[in-house]
């Protein structure tokens, strides 16, 4: 086990983590501001990936594909908010879960209807393909480094948006007391639509970026959605900082667990048994992490005290 392998796996975990952050940031904002559990967030991720694949196919431009993915996901998000989601704000969580579960069914089958069951492919642009050599002699794919950079950039931008701008002040005020800011003259329903579209655009961006290293297909959003929920629950629902910490924690746990747990068990078990025990434990690792965090702090690492 060389230091190069370890460094590579840490980078992989980081890359996975920041992509989860893009999903989790939207979810946690939507929950924090509107108090809404949105299971359909994974569908917005899928919509982003499909639009990116189609636009990249037409124009050959990856940048246009990303813009299309964000625009399409934001538009779909705004539409869903206007038609369905705003009827759910004052309902209980069970209704929100079920209504957005219904939206998943509609979006997934609708996409299958239009595009069929076969995956689409989105290629990494030539300028970003191929490996680069990092200090220490580590060969690492440039595209994945770009993903890490983009994710951290978005995190920074989002942090600035929330803490430094007028809209950020309104969002934070909305988390604390929605009646009050409505009484102060902020158009609360416009703010809600905006926050929802912002979260959707981030999900769409994540879908397009990840779509280039995996295949673009129906159902791609749900595994990521569940991981994003794990992330925001670990971080504390409503906290952007919690989402970033949780995302990186989950990304690293999942990636490093998959590689190192089987190795760890090989130290005191026979290899074949170690591999099977290690890999089954690794696949459960993030859920165990989440359960431990929740049992230790029932509202997550950065969550408000209940």
């Amino acid at each position: 086990m060389s230091h190069i392998l370890i460094a590579e796996q840490v980078l992989n975990g980081l890359q996975f983590g920041v992509m989860l952050f893009l999903m989790a940031a939207g979810l946690t904002l939507i929950f924090g501001v509107m108090g809404l559990i949105n299971l359909a967030h994974g569908s917005l991720y899928m919509i982003g990936a499909f639009f990116a694949a189609v636009v990249a196919g037409w124009t050959g431009s990856f940048l246009l594909a990303l813009i299309a993915a964000m625009a399409a996901a934001a538009a779909a998000g705004a539409l869903v908010e206007l038609v369905v989601i705003r009827r759910l704000y004052d309902k209980d969580h069970l209704d929100q879960v079920l209504a957005t579960f219904a939206l998943i069914l509609i979006f997934s089958e609708g996409t299958r209807w239009v595009f069929g069951s076969f995956p689409l492919f989105l290629d990494i642009p030539d300028a970003l393909s191929g490996p680069v050599t990092l200090p220490g002699g580590i060969q690492y794919p440039l595209y994945r480094l770009v993903l890490i950079g983009t994710g951290l950039g978005v995190a920074l931008g989002l942090g600035l948006l929330i803490t430094r701008t007028r809209i950020g002040i309104q969002i934070r005020a909305g988390e604390n007391d929605r009646e009050m800011i409505a009484a102060l003259g902020v158009d609360i329903s416009r703010l809600y639509t905006l926050v929802f579209a912002l979260g959707a655009a981030l999900a769409g961006l994540a879908g397009a970026l990840v779509g280039a290293i995996q295949s673009v297909q129906v159902g791609m959003g749900e595994p990521v959605l569940i991981l994003a929920f794990v992330v925001i629950v670990i971080g504390g629902i409503g906290s952007i900082r919690g989402a970033l910490v949780g995302a990186i924690l989950v990304g690293l746990t999942d990636t490093l667990g998959g590689v190192f747990l089987p190795e760890l068990f090989k130290l005191f078990m026979e290899p074949s048994a170690a591999t099977s025990v290690g890999s089954s434990l690794a696949s459960m690792a993030i859920y165990i992490l989440m359960a431990v965090v929740l049992i230790w702090r029932p509202t997550g690492l950065f969550g408000a005290r209940a």
Binding site: H93, V230, V233, Y287, M290, G300
Partner: peptide
């Protein structure tokens, strides 16, 4: 020990644990 959304999510997490 948890309630509300956290309860929904932790039960979901246990489900995923068994699934994987």
């Amino acid at each position: 020990r948890t309630s509300g959304v956290y309860f929904i999510m932790i039960t979901l997490a246990f489900g995923q644990m068994f699934f994987f």
